Amino acid sequence: MLPMGESMALWIPFTIFAAFMQAWRNAFQNRLSKEVSTAGVTLARFLWASPLAACYLAGLYLYKPVALPVVTGSFVALILLAAVAQIIATALMVVLFRQRNYAIGVGLAKSEAVIAAVLGALFFSAPLSALAWAGVIIGALAFWLMTNPGALRKVSLNTLLVGLGSGLSFALTTLWVREASLTLGLPFPYSAAWVLLAVILVQTLLLGAWVAWRERGTLLALWQRPGQIVSISLFSCLGSLGWFTAMSLETVALVKTLGQIEVLFTLMISARWFRETLSSRDLVGLALIVVGAVCVMLA
């Protein structure tokens, strides 16, 4: 295992890397969502991710062999829960893409950081400092500003519920992923690599079987778009690698609150690639997310 000081330093670059990769994955998914069903867009992030995760794990063992993990019933349960929760979270975020523009859809899903902080403190023995809670509260304010672009009476209940549902599912995914990583007891970064491969394999099998059963036409649509599918899977795998590794070093609440800077990357992509415009209220919300992330880094 890494010394405490070194691990404290490493989780920050891994989180920033994950946020950057995820921003691009969301951008590719947003474009694909205009051509393929929600289940198809969700499946696209897993199709080529499994071999990529397997290559990463094999590379670690070639570089420095360590003991193989001992698989327990609790580990299997945590992997299954995390895999299903992430499928639901991704599907709900694709629905958000269709309800509002790309940047705001991702901003709504970032309620994940707030929910993860609360659940982590209440049920996963992960209390936060005052400064860290300040970052979480600022992030919550940003989420509200971006969810409610007009007067209180004009708030879209449907958009709010979908956004909260996506955030809750993502939060549960990350909390269960961290717990699964800790149960293996392997050195850094092997535990995160095993969890990454296990989660992606389960997701590919579950969602692939569902799409093959209910939406066979979607499989053809994905086959006809190899470039888009490979891009989504690649950036998804790299993003998950960053998230899972960071969460094996630090609590989910801190990782996900810092990870809200993804929305800053999203804003840049949205403006330059999708040519979308944001209101001043949206820009204030994005700025507050950055402030919240800074509070977490200083906590």
Rank of each mutant, 00 (worst) to 15 (best):
G59C: 04
L60K: 08
L60S: 08
L60D: 10
L62F: 12
V66L: 11
L68Y: 06
F75I: 05
V76T: 14
I79N: 11
I79T: 11
A83C: 09
V84H: 03
Q86N: 13
I88E: 07
I88F: 13
T90L: 07
L92F: 10
M93E: 14
M93D: 08
Q99I: 09
R100E: 12
N101P: 01
A103M: 09
A103T: 13
G105Y: 07
V106N: 06
V106S: 00
G107C: 11
G107N: 09
E112G: 06
I115V: 13
I115E: 05
A116Q: 04
A116F: 05
V118W: 02
A121H: 07
F123T: 04
F124S: 01
L128K: 01
A134T: 13
A134L: 15
G135H: 02
I137Y: 02
I137N: 00
A140V: 03
T147Y: 10
A151C: 05
L152W: 15
V155C: 11
S156K: 03
L157Y: 10
N158M: 12
N158K: 15
T159W: 01
L160P: 02
L161S: 06
G163K: 07
G165F: 02
G165S: 02
S166C: 07
G167E: 02
L168S: 12
S169P: 00
T173M: 07
T174V: 11
W176C: 15
E179A: 15
A180V: 07
L182H: 13
L184K: 03
L184W: 09
G185R: 05
G185A: 08
F188D: 05
F188H: 14
Y190H: 15
